[in-house]
């Protein structure tokens, strides 16, 4: 049986670990709330732009706009969203595994990567993938300009002909307990088209074509923003869940150790009493 001091020390250690995991859980919960409210805020804007574009695109000749034009996809680019930090359960592992499978299927040497978040960069860099851009260390002060920066970089490389097709792989936020890995066709722009035209006769200023040209970058920016927010919310949710589990496990472990400690203590006392009693008996005789 382990001695009392050792057990006491272990209990102390686990208690301080539990404090850390509990604090991390609370921090993640607060960040999750913020991420969710950001997602809430972005919805009207994204929905409206999407709605207008969807109605306009059927009228536009795809060949007239570079970002709409479907060209044979010889080279592909993948934008992979991960977090900067670990301790969030299987959040990064899962997405990296799936992203790798998707990229390998498309052909490793015909694919370029844009890594958002440090974990993804480290993973793919170590394995010799062609990473053309990577972004890290911004999740804490995430704002819309990051989305614009990434979207512009991705788009300008696309326009320069470095790749012909862009896919985004990210964790979609379903609810706190559930994140779903999604693959999204970012460029060329495809929207589930609506047959129903805008039910009103709009006047377009300066012209329909130019309105579409102006809208597409807006749409791409806000989509990128959505990916960032979804991924961020998913990360915090995953961290919250796994830290909660860790806190619970620490509690279980402490209970078990306490029991063991008490048993050891009782055994020690019993032994001592026995020693005293048998010592006294020996004197009597």
């Amino acid at each position: 049986m382990a001695n009392l001091k050792d057990i006491r020390k272990r209990i102390g250690t686990i208690e301080s670990i539990r404090q850390v995991t509990r604090a991390m859980k609370l921090v993640a919960a607060a960040k999750l709330r913020r991420a969710q409210s950001n997602m809430e805020q972005a919805r009207p804007y994204a929905g409206r732009i999407n709605g207008v574009l969807k109605h306009l695109l059927p009228d536009i000749d795809r060949n007239t706009h570079q970002l709409l034009n479907m060209r044979p996809a010889r080279k592909k680019a993948f934008v992979v969203f991960t977090s900067d930090r670990g301790l969030c359960g299987s959040f990064n592992t899962n997405i990296l595994k799936q992203a790798r499978a998707i990229i390998d299927e498309a052909g490793k040497d015909r694919s370029q990567l844009i890594c958002i978040g440090r974990k993804g960069y480290e993973f793919f860099n170590k394995r010799g993938y062609d990473i053309v851009e990577h972004y890290a260390d911004f999740w804490n002060e995430l704002n819309f300009s990051h989305a614009v920066k990434i979207a512009e970089a991705v788009t300008s490389r696309y326009l320069a002909g470095e790749y012909d097709d862009v896919r985004v792989i990210y964790n979609q936020f379903k609810n706190v307990a559930q994140q779903k890995i999604e693959e999204f066709h970012y460029l060329p722009l495809v929207l589930e088209e609506d047959d129903e035209k805008i039910n009103q006769d709009y006047l377009f200023e300066p012209s329909k074509g130019e309105v579409v040209t102006a809208l597409i970058p807006r749409h791409l920016n806000v989509q990128m923003w959505r990916f960032l927010l979804e991924s961020n919310a998913s990360e915090q949710a995953a961290r919250m869940t796994s830290m909660e589990a860790a806190t619970e496990n620490a509690g279980d472990l402490i209970d078990r150790l306490r029991l063991e400690y008490n048993k050891a203590r009782q055994a020690a006392i019993t032994t001592e009493i026995l020693e005293v009693v048998s010592g006294a008996e020996a004197l009597v005789e």
Binding site: V52, Y202, L203, F204, E205
Partner: peptide, 8 residues
């Protein structure tokens, strides 16, 4: 009372 329009 402006005409319905979409303007960039």
């Amino acid at each position: 009372g402006h005409t319905a329009s979409i303007m960039a």
